[in-house]
Nucleic acid binder design. Structure first.
Lengths: 243, 243
DNA sequence: ACCTTATGACAACACCGTTGACCTGTTAAG
DNA sequence: CTTAACAGGTCAACGGTGTTGTCATAAGGT
């Protein structure tokens, strides 16, 4: 049993399942994504995935060493779909804003998968392409290498983190989500000014704002700060804009 | 069996377990926190918790309807501990930085609880106190109500989102985490400059930076942008610093 | 001292990921 | 065209999980 998994390229004897399905890494990943979308993140288990595929659960271990491996593959597929239509224009602030909003939207479109995949490094093709692109945008903008990496890291993590956070919100059962807005409206909306002056003064805005994602605001603050930072770097080194 | 759980106030017949322990909500929550701290996030299961308490697992269902309930109670306790020692000094940037780092650290110390609680509004005492305090800091700094709420929202969500993201990282089994740094070192560290110029140029920094949380960097960028924003507001309205 | 009943214990259910042993159709070599 | 190797699908089992229906018993009020 020393090694159960075979690299996808070397795979050749593709024998169909008892139920007539020919397995493949792509089919498995695709089915996993579909399962997550349709029945929630908890619906993804090796056994259920096997059932959905028409194969014995243990067959999957011929393709992935363990569940973690499978999740990485799913995550990479998500990254690929998110980036497929992104085209940098040369305006780095606009490009990053666009990309950030895309990542966030992608996460919201696949809430369960995003929650599971946000914190992993896949080291797979799609991810590598993404890293290269974003670093390119930042370095062309004029950030020195160390700063480019710092900004890159914070940017990506922010997008992933907010994506996961907001995903988790939308993934809540309907009743729970309505209960939340109700908490804002009643509990916070009715605190007396004597005991809670600041909440009372802003209650109107709180109720209106708290059910909308704060990511766009956070992203704009982030980009503002990054631009300011770049300006200071340029001023200090006396460098002009490249190209 | 209509309702198994009894409100804590109504609890009266405190019979010890077979092993002589007298259960209580506080004891259970405390033990759960201890378990998480000592043996990692996935050491917390109903059965293990029961064993650690010296009680049958099913006894816990007299105190919490299900594991989620227990985790929320743990999270609430966490909020309390995080805020207990925070004292605003009057320097709003320093205060918010301090609070953000505290929230992040608290999340890291209790990954499972943080992940679960990040996207919920409890409307409970600790949370209300936190909202009032932060809004107070921002309004005293001079932000008008609408802006104070916007900044508040983004600030809190950023802290929670990064907390949950980084928590998920530390909650990973040891092997998986080492695999991640290995991916950065080998996969990304060895890409040729011809195909991936930007990654190759910054590989050194990538390897060093990516295993550290980017939250402090993101937080500083956030605060920088907020300060800039406040300055612009002041300039536009010609208002001076209050007090 | 007795009754009620809150609360702990037990046993069972339906899941989960993972693995070792087995079986069989595909494929490449002769 | 035959045949032998072995990739890859299947089966059964292990030890874990959360949860619940039922039972028994000791605590507390009377």
């Amino acid at each position: 049993m020393s090694e159960r998994v075979v690299p996808p390229t070397a795979r050749q004897r593709r024998r169909p399942t008892k139920q007539g399905v020919v397995l493949s890494e792509e089919l498995i990943v695709g089915t996993a994504l579909r399962l997550i979308e349709e029945h929630g993140a908890d619906a993804l288990s090796v056994r259920r995935l096997g059932r959905a595929l028409g194969a014995d659960p243990s067959s999957l271990y011929r393709y992935f060493r363990h569940t973690d491996d499978l999740m990485l593959a799913v995550a990479d597929e998500l990254i690929g779909r998110t980036l497929r239509t992104w085209r940098p224009t040369g305006d780095w602030v606009a490009d990053l804003r666009d990309l950030g909003l895309r990542m966030h939207a992608g996460a919201l479109a696949h809430p369960r998968a995003a929650t599971l995949a946000a914190h992993r490094v896949t080291g797979r093709a799609h991810e590598i392409r993404a890293v290269e692109s974003i670093l390119g945008v930042l370095r062309r903008a004029g950030f020195p290498d160390r700063e480019a990496v710092r900004i890159y890291h914070a940017f990506v993590d922010q997008a992933l983190a907010f994506g996961a956070l907001d995903s988790a919100g939308t993934a809540l059962p309907r009743a729970a989500r309505e209960a939340e807005t109700q908490v804002w409206r009643t509990t916070y909306g009715r605190l007396p000014a004597e005991t809670h002056p600041h909440i009372a003064a802003t209650a109107r805005h709180l109720v209106a704002t708290m059910r909308v994602s704060s990511y766009p605001a956070a992203l704009d603050l982030f980009l503002t700060a990054a631009r300011t930072h770049l300006g200071q770097l340029r001023a200090r080194t006396g460098a002009s804009r490249p190209h």
